[in-house]
Nucleic acid binder design. Structure first.
Length: 493
RNA sequence: GGCGCAUUCGUCUAGCGGCCCAGGACACCGCCCUCUCAAGGCGGAGAUCGGGGGUUCGAAUCCCCCAUGCGCUACCA
């Protein structure tokens, strides 16, 4: 059997972490087996569809590198790939079920259904539709529908006895008592199908072999199996994935920070890191591998190594992985990816476009220090900022010269003199000169370097000092040190 | 309330009857290195496998019960 899997997002907003994890597993499975991965937009709820959401979701998938073989934008042999454009298919299926007696029309207005449900709940009875229209005589039903101005829905005639077995690839057979199933809606009043009807009809029509979905669907899986049976279709293999939880074990939500793929992209996470991280949320290669390339994951991926336990989204682990992948990039590649973040982070008055080439020697040093590309700007902004740097004077003294501006001044002035004589202007020569200065002052290198670092970069935490100075250039370095000297010489603050 | 799923270090997991007084990774702690911050090296702490019964010569692994968490119980997906 050829492998065909589908990702079926509803266009209601951003591409969420939980959804993209499902899409990733779909994609990995398809790629591993040389099958097809398709995207189908499940826009059957007119009230929830959001303009532009489809494009944002596709954009998220593209950014992740999850390419699809068939979809709403590129078409394919089983199109269209938007459920709202496939309405006739669902109608035909509903008519067939109506004709075979496996479904019936229902004239009960939503308000009545709601009342019935609430009443049942109050009496601690199983909630759900009471099947009032299920066995109405045709003439009576026609009257009821007429009384509702012709409005009606189509409901599935659920069996009242027996049990339905849902074969889940992860948990084995899960058995559901049929009498607990109510007669759910197949076709809504507006003519749109519910998820249940639409997904069964489409998965069959699109020849889907495996369905990966969140395990919130497990409870309704018997409805789907029953529909396949009623329609005479062969059901696909179902894989109900465990949910992704927030750190507090609750549903992952905005409360826990970013939840959309785009938000992670904007912070400077690498798609390959996110893929590695997400793949390990509910799947493992073996007992020790945690770092894998996308190709390696595809190679190793399969259902038999998927887990069933709900997983917690651990941001710290993602950060560690992202830092890992960031370090592996070549310096030019790192710069290329980081550049857009710099453009965004630097103030307006910095001239664009930015020229990063002078910073290249610093690349490896910064690479090993950032977890996200967005942090890049904090390390190199000193190079671009025009005019005097903005920092509190106390920073210039650091711990070594605490409350001792005179001491810090000695270091800064000594550095100015030493740097003016450095030749050639290289990190090595600068290091020799500054270490010599520390020796002459009989102070630890760290004590002497802190004022210099702050003077030159404006902050206490920065890339290594000598390389920083080398990149900045002698003139700008001395200029900034002079500014610092003036500040330290001033008696006030 | 009913039904369903789940339950191994803080987190992700390995484990599918003896190799486990439970292994790895992230996080954490300490030391080393060190111009700040990182990175790196070395070391450490951390789960009596949710609890209780069984089955077995032997159980984290099989069975039962309980507890807890989550999901479903929509003309939402």
């Amino acid at each position: 059997m050829s492998v065909r899997v589908r990702f079926g997002p509803s266009p209601t907003g951003e591409l969420h972490m939980g959804s993209v994890r499902t899409a990733l597993f779909d994609w990995l499975f398809a790629r591993h087996h040389g099958g097809e991965f398709l995207v189908r937009i499940e826009d059957t709820d007119q009230t929830r569809s959001v303009a532009g959401a489809e494009e944002r979701i596709l954009e998220g998938l593209r950014w992740m590198g999850l390419d699809w073989d068939e979809g709403p934008d590129i078409g394919g042999p089983h199109g269209p790939y938007r459920q709202s454009e496939r309405l006739p298919l669902y109608e035909v299926a509903a008519e067939r079920l109506l004709a075979s007696g496996r479904a019936y029309r229902c004239a009960c207005p939503p308000e009545r259904v709601k009342q019935v449900r609430e009443e049942a709940q109050r009496r601690k009875r199983p909630p759900g539709y009471d099947a009032r229209c299920r066995d109405l005589a045709p003439a009576d039903l026609a009257n009821e529908i007429a009384a509702q101005d012709g409005r009606s829905v189509v409901r599935f005639r659920s069996p009242r006895e027996g049990a339905t077995v849902v074969p889940d690839a992860l948990r084995g057979d899960v058995v559901f008592e049929n009498r607990l199933l109510d007669d759910h809606v197949l076709l809504k009043e507006d003519g749109f199908p519910t998820y249940h009807l639409a997904s069964v009809v489409d998965d069959h029509a699109m020849e889907i072999s495996h369905v990966f979905r969140g395990d919130e669907w497990l409870s309704s899986a018997p409805r789907h199996l029953l529909l396949y049976e009623a329609l005479g279709y062969e059901p696909p293999v179902f894989i109900h994935q465990p949910v992704i939880l927030g750190p507090d074990k609750g549903k992952l939500s905005k409360r826990h920070g970013a939840t959309s793929v785009s938000a992670y992209a904007e912070q400077g996470y690498l798609p390959e890191a996110l893929i590695n991280f997400l793949a390990l949320l509910g799947w493992s290669k073996d007992d020790r591998t945690t770092k894998m390339s996308v190709a390696e994951i595809i190679e190793a991926f399969d259902i038999d190594r998927m887990g069933v336990t709900p997983v917690t989204f651990d941001q710290t682990r993602l950060d560690a992985m992202n830092a890992d992948f960031l370090r592996e990039l070549g310096p030019e590649e790192f710069f290329r990816r980081a550049a857009p973040f710099l453009e965004r982070a630097l103030p307006e008055d910095v001239a664009r476009p930015l020229d990063l080439t002078p910073l290249l020697p610093l690349a490896p040093l910064i690479q090993e220090r950032v977890k996200r590309l967005a942090e890049f700007a904090e390390y190199v902004d000193f190079f671009f900022l025009p005019g005097p740097l903005d920092y509190p004077n106390a920073e210039l003294m650091g711990k070594g010269f605490r409350d001792n501006p005179a001491g810090a001044l000695t270091a800064v002035e000594g550095a100015i003199a030493a740097l003016k004589a450095v030749e050639p202007w290289t990190a090595e020569a600068i290091e020799a000169a500054l270490r010599g200065l520390a020796d002459r002052l009989a102070l630890r290198a760290g004590v002497v370097f802190t004022p210099l670092r702050v003077a030159v970069t404006g902050k206490r935490i920065a890339p290594p000092l000598f390389e920083t100075l080398a990149v900045l250039g002698r003139a700008r370095a001395v200029e900034r040190l002079n500014v610092a000297a003036e500040r330290l010489a001033r008696p006030d603050d």
